[in-house]
Write a protein that binds this DNA or RNA. Sequence first.
DNA 1: CCATATGATTCAGG
DNA 2: CCTGAATCATATGG
Length: 330
Amino acid sequence: MDDQTRMLASMGGLGGLSQADVGDPDSVRKQQSLGQPPQDIGDILQQIMAITDESLDEAQARKHALNCHRMKPALFSVLCEIKEKTVLSIRGVQEEDPPDPQIMRLDNMLLAEGVSGPEKGGGSAAAAAAAAAAGGSPNDGSIEHSDYRAKLAQIRQIYHSELEKYEQACSEFTNHVMNLLREQSRTRPISPKEIERMVAIIHRKFSSIQMQLKQSTCEAVMILRSRFLDARRKRRNFNKQATEVLNEYFYSHLSNPYPSEEAKEELAKKCAITVSQVSNWFGNKRIRYKKNIGKFQEEANLYAVKTAVDAANVSAQASQANSPATPNSG
DNA sequence: CCATATGATTCAGG
DNA sequence: CCTGAATCATATGG
């Protein structure tokens, strides 16, 4: 844009001058060929100064008269053509790559993360993707999810408001420049094509800002993801009672420690954890038990006794119906 | 601060 | 899709 602006600006200056001596278009050349430049320049200067003495109405009228001159359109197009040829080499260079690959990549990423997509659909899509491994139970991972969703919504909101600001500023600026150029096209050769080109240039410049916005949004989402969705960062041990329940099941089914889906659901409910957490726990337990049975022998005995005692208690309670004297383990 | 425990994730295989 | 195995990253106890 810089080169063009400079060029247009300088031609604007010329425009003022040519308007000044339009009364006798050949005067300059004639006098120059006569070989008395100082005098001629003084002449021109005088004419210019005379303009400032004119009233606004007079100047306006003169301008209007010029604009209505029958030769004006022809002259205008000729000037445009000349200008087109003169500046051709300058632009021509950067005319391609309309679909910026990088911005498309960022767009796709933001869409996938549910930042730029539709309000509810995108968000739940991301949530579904996150919970996909969990088997679809509605309460899976809901503890951290609300937090994650809230933060994501926050990013989303910032992104959209910034994008809106950006779009507004862009169109405002574009309109401004277009109006300016259109206005100036009355006094200097600016073809509609050129205005179009200028708009394209502006948009290209602005799109780098947009890319920056999208890039930083992407970054924020990625950080958020790694913080919240990688639960390894927030590992919390299950409470004692939960591990007890799980161990009980494990050691009482030691010959086949593979809980069915229903069993997993029940264990999950008892332990206030998710089904996938139960699966994880059993997966880890099996492999670690198998790896070093000796290390777990004590634990195995403990739970074997425990279940035996519990069974005894249960049977005792069952056989004794409703006797209040049944001893309970603290 | 280190070693160990532990929940979660990743990846290969059936 | 489920599992075993390896691995990661944190929690915990000494």
